[in-house]
Design a protein around this nucleic acid. Structure first.
Lengths: 334, 334
DNA sequence: AGCGACCGGGTAATGGATTACCCAACGATC
DNA sequence: GATCGTTGGGTAATCCATTACCCGGTCGCT
């Protein structure tokens, strides 16, 4: 594998000149630049990243640690981050923490060890492993969920409000016994969505009977929860579902029970999955601006990398309720 | 940021001993190991990755370059890779080439520069940038699509056969004018699926009129293609669709045209998306063993990292046709 | 003509972990 | 008791790109 000295020898210059010519940091004679370029191409020279990063004390890489690669919400965030980072020459590496504090911790360690320029993460639960980033002085931004006890840059969605609006919508459509299937306790978005749901019921003066279930943010858990809720003596006549993977589980359960969404039970789910309009009836959703979250987070991160002393900011983006037939309401049923 | 010398000083030993104690490569006195560990923890020591990788000439990282993060097929592959790699202490970084040869090329350069131990990629098109990996001696494995002109390890699905079977199934169900919407020319899976489709029509002695459309592997392209096909004078009465993102586009088009899938037009799509059973009627799919592809690829890669001289292998996995109501057939319609 | 400013480019220090090589100490063997 | 082997641990070389520092040459100004 060719090194910078090989290139220097072939071009008949010093290694310093090769470095300067290839990085364009300092002015180098035209002819020399050309000679160096030529030599580099001929040798197929690729700079040694570790050596460069060792010397520079930082890699032009940002790590993006997301809690579920299979969740379209997070992959959309990833695209937002990528597009912005690439524009300014940073690479993005994606790490999948799988909602596990341990994996998240592991990836944070790796990010620190590899001296990445910054980290964007969707914190799983109440982890304190981000503290390491703070003490190391590595720039980081939290997305989707805040970091309790750290005032870092955060990009959030006003998910409590969105849940409240979605629930109020169900109330307005005439549903009476509205249930909620949300994520695990301690996961901030799950808690917030539940809180928004309760806000709406409270201000509509509904009592909130036992119509809440919490499970992991996956189809399987939501499937069980839905079966459980709907086989009760007094089942809900509408459901607020906290993400699109869960919506899949709920819709499966409804199929099995032969309960028709939008007819027998009203539904609103978080996240506008590409298939939401294709199911029958089309699923009402709370569309979160995922790409935007990623793009904003990336810009904040870059700003922080450039100036670590800037005051931390919290950006809260809004979500949009897309009313479709699955929440049409009892009135319209006939 | 604490360095190995800081730890050595605090533990009262040499840097060599610290390295040996922490890596367990050589036998070190129990007490010293304890002292070193203690000092490392107290200082919050995290080894400097670039320094380590520079010295070792390789990072315990494998790069996974996939052509679309938003495609569940590829994210499932990612999980397979991750699970296997993590077992043996490798980290996985995910790179999204977005079906762009340029981005793929860029990520390959980065992988080489960072001296990753190996690369798994789903090659976009006829790129030759993988040649660099070969000349550099970096281990790599291709998934989903072979690399023309390189005999590397490859993990494939027998997608031509699967397409043939799916098409034969449509024939058997009594469909007459079967169309196909597949990916861009030059993308191997797209070509293979088309070839399998033609195989089936040929052996069923159907002429293949102008019922094939090729677009990018996305919903938007497939949407246009479906509108185009179905508004022809003699539209198809069934469609083979080459992936799940395209299936979304096609289903949208059918909704707009008020053509009922499984009733007016038979459908089979590649990839078993979580929502396939939820649409009305449930979508027949060709389920590819994506997780398995990733797991096998990772094992092959690890084997090649360990022994670069082993002969390249091609693993072909089978796909399963899941017959659901969207391909019920004209006979059953009434 | 002489002096300083400026510029291009070379020499060598630097970053931090790993490891080849070497040495000391201790136990075992004859 | 002397010698050899073994083992644990220290010293210093090594990986390679970047960059501080320095030097020689050119140009401009007086």
């Amino acid at each position: 594998m060719a090194t910078i000295s090989d290139v220097a020898a072939r071009a008949g210059v010093s290694t310093a000149t090769v470095s300067r010519a290839l990085n364009g940091k300092s002015t180098v004679d035209r002819d020399l630049v050309a000679r160096v370029r030529k030599a580099a191409v001929e040798l197929g020279y690729q700079p040694n990243g570790p050596a460069r990063n060792l010397r520079r004390q930082e890699a032009a890489v940002v790590a993006l640690i997301i809690s579920d690669v299979e969740n379209p919400f997070f992959t959309a965030i990833a695209r937002g981050v990528e597009d912005v980072a690439h524009e300014v020459g940073y690479s993005v590496v994606l790490c999948n923490s799988d909602e596990s504090a341990e994996k998240e911790n592991r990836y944070i360690d790796i990010a620190i060890q590899e001296r990445v320029a910054g980290v964007i993460l969707s914190p799983s639960g109440t982890t304190t492993s981000v503290a390491k980033l703070a003490t190391r002085g590595t720039a980081y931004v939290a997305v989707d969920r805040p970091l309790p006890g750290h005032d870092s840059d955060v990009v959030l969605v006003d998910t409590r409000l969105a849940a409240r609006q979605a629930t109020a919508h169900l109330v307005a459509q005439g549903y009476d016994r509205i249930g909620c299937i949300t994520g695990p306790s301690g996961v901030r978005t799950a808690d917030d969505r539940l809180a928004g749901y309760r806000d709406a019921l409270r201000s509509a003066k509904r009592r909130t009977p036992k119509l809440v279930r919490r499970t992991e943010y996956k189809a399987a858990g939501a499937h069980r929860a839905a079966l459980d809720l709907l086989s009760q003596a007094e089942p809900p006549d509408a459901l607020l579902i906290a993400n699109s993977a869960m919506a899949v589980g709920v819709l499966q359960a409804l199929q099995e029970l032969e309960i028709r969404p939008g007819r027998d039970v009203g539904l609103v789910a978080f996240d506008d999955a590409p298939w939401a309009e294709l199911v029958d009836p089309p699923l009402s959703v709370v569309a979160q601006p995922a790409y935007e979250i990623g793009a904003v987070a990336a810009r904040l991160l870059l700003a922080r990398i450039a100036d670590s002393s800037r005051p931390p900011t919290t950006t809260t983006l809004g979500a949009r309720l897309l009313e479709r037939a699955s929440s049409r309401g009892p009135e319209d049923r006939r």
